[in-house]
Nucleic acid binder design. Structure first.
Lengths: 341, 341
DNA sequence: AAAGCGACCGAAAACCCTTTCGGGACTGTA
DNA sequence: TACAGTCCCGAAAGGGTTTTCGGTCGCTTT
């Protein structure tokens, strides 16, 4: 660590060289493990560097190499809880190497996004990951940037870009298939805001699973909000219209929590009378309910890692194929579909 | 934006100068609004810069100025939901200016933290904000760093450092005072993991409020986990031992959700029979329950902004006073303490 | 003893930008 | 016409590091 407090004064390599009685270049080679340096000299330089607590200036090095070892993470909305795991996954994948992450939150504001983008380019990041808060396509940053870009969660609307997003259609399918596997046949769907692709995609997968099994859904899917309140209200409707319902696919864990509560109020036991599944596996909701919720984990952290690896590869001149890659999700089975023991 | 795609080649100032038919220095002055440049010349340079989509290299500039306009955000655990709003607040305060944020997640691992710290210093950040996930004091990074450091949420254990943390004692006090103001007198406390300062601090404030009112708590505070499950179990105990309880202070919103559920099961209506308060105002829990939860908002985003401002000031040579500053929290009143209309 | 070779070190360029300072050209006045 | 003054522009240094290439010194071999 640099030695001085507060004031920006930091030891420089030439000071180390002087202290060790060698030239600048020798000091550099000694500290970087280059050959052409006598072991004794190397030790002397090393000692001097330690004594002065020398810290190489990464700026100067980057200036030379043309690579900064930094990546920009451009998020549209930090508040959204989906970006965090993605961000973690990316940070994780980078942290293993020597890459650091510039975090920029655009607040869903295009102007602010442009501003941040410019700042990132000024700082010569080696690549940019754009993380959106919905799975709906978002505007591309454009093709003529000096660094590679990948999109995570929210895919780019330009098919020439590289995007990664969770596969909501398959998610809806597998969670519905699970209900079928549990022997349920009268299955209703309660989803969230229909303006979200996440809502319609999941419904689409779910309906497909039913169709494959030769079953019809129990009424049209109900769309509303991504809230417990909506879950409670919609469940009441479902139970009223279809008293024989034995499975409910929910568009989110929040909705599922509401459904559970209404079922409880109406004296329907879960999972015996009716099985309920959530989506997203937001653990604070899914593992704290009674019974715990079967749900779909979108594996967002892995998605973040994938995006990071793609950026790595692109930086090394080996870009991923353009287009939207839909990453697998996984079913997490808990008590709301299978009775305990 | 730089013009070339993928490959790192980016326009440099000397290329702009050449294109405009002026010298390097003139180009610099023209683009930076310095005087000593004829308007016509300036326009010509500007045009050339636009045409080549020139982007100034922030690295070179930083090298010169000795300031990078970057700040390190060193968090111990991204997963913790407390760091996110703090991070947003900080990012917010910086975003207004020209500062960008390096995000580093140490995963609660001291080695990784040192590693990240070193990387941040190598990159010559102008300052560092350390964000912890608990309000318990954490080890200091030490005094002999070359840049100013402030601690947010988790204060440093070294009183010479600058720390900001929410005031949990006052939080416990005001939320209890609110119950008293609602006419409640038989008040129990269900808290979380007692190894957390957050648990004990809140209890301490709560007890103090009762003592000030000349009241004794209804039994010793119950400590357990920060989960709904514990809230359900503990509430059952409280109702069994103290059937006359009319107010329950919970250590977190999760616990409060559990308490609400048990109250519902036992036919105790909230808030008429018993008023319930949560803590943290985690809105996915507090505004989705029935009734909605009165809670304490720790104002974390403001805490992040405060930390950012403190770093700003310290960078400008005006450090905040050392020690732990406890920032105010605010009571959010909802239906779990006051019946709707 | 001379020549040759290997081991080691240092000078200098390069990266890209900002800023200072000196000088050139032009205008106006004596 | 000559000089003072003004207005622009350009040369050069500086910031910290890495890397290349040339040079020096000592040792070995004949």
């Amino acid at each position: 660590m640099p030695r001085t407090h507060g004031a920006g004064r930091v030891t420089t390599l030439s000071e180390v060289a002087e202290a060790a009685g060698v030239s600048l270049s020798t000091a550099s080679k000694a500290l970087n493990g280059r050959a052409q340096v006598a072991p004794a000299t190397r030790a002397r330089v090393q000692a001097a560097a330690d004594r002065l607590s020398f810290t190489p200036n990464a700026l100067a090095r980057s200036l030379l190499e043309g690579k900064t070892g930094t990546v920009g993470l451009l998020t549209s909305d930090l508040e959204g809880r989906f970006v965090l795991p993605i961000l973690m996954g990316a940070e994780d994948a980078f942290g293993a190497g020597q890459v650091n992450v510039f975090l920029c939150d655009a607040r869903g504001d295009a102007i602010r996004e442009q501003h941040h983008l410019k700042a990132l380019l000024n700082r010569r990041v080696d690549g940019i990951i754009v993380v959106g808060r919905q799975t709906d396509p978002r505007p591309s940053l454009g093709q003529d940037l000096s660094v590679p870009v990948v999109y995570a969660y929210a895919p780019s609307d330009d098919p020439d870009d590289v995007s990664f997003t969770p596969d909501n259609v398959v998610g809806g399918r597998i969670v519905t298939q699970h209900l079928l596997d549990c022997g349920r046949t009268r299955i209703a769907h309660i989803s969230g805001d229909p303006s979200y692709a996440a809502a319609t995609d999941r419904v689409e997968g779910s309906q497909a699973a039913l169709a494959d099994a030769g079953l019809a859904p129990l009424g049209a899917p109900l769309f509303g909000a991504w809230s417990e309140q909506w879950g409670r209200d919609a469940a009441a409707q479902v139970f009223a219209r279809h008293p024989d319902v034995d499975g409910i696919v929910c568009g989110s864990d929040q909705i599922a929590r509401g459904v559970l509560e209404t079922a409880r109020d109406l004296g329907r036991s879960v999972p015996e009378d009716v099985a309920v599944v959530g989506y997203d596996d937001w653990q604070v909701l899914s593992t704290n309910s009674r019974p715990e919720l079967t749900s779909v984990d979108a594996n967002l952290q892995e998605l973040g890692r994938t995006a990071a690896r793609a950026i790595f590869a692109a930086i090394d001149g080996d870009p991923a194929p353009a287009g939207v890659e839909r990453l697998p999700v996984k079913l997490v089975i808990r008590g709301s579909t299978i009775a305990r023991r």
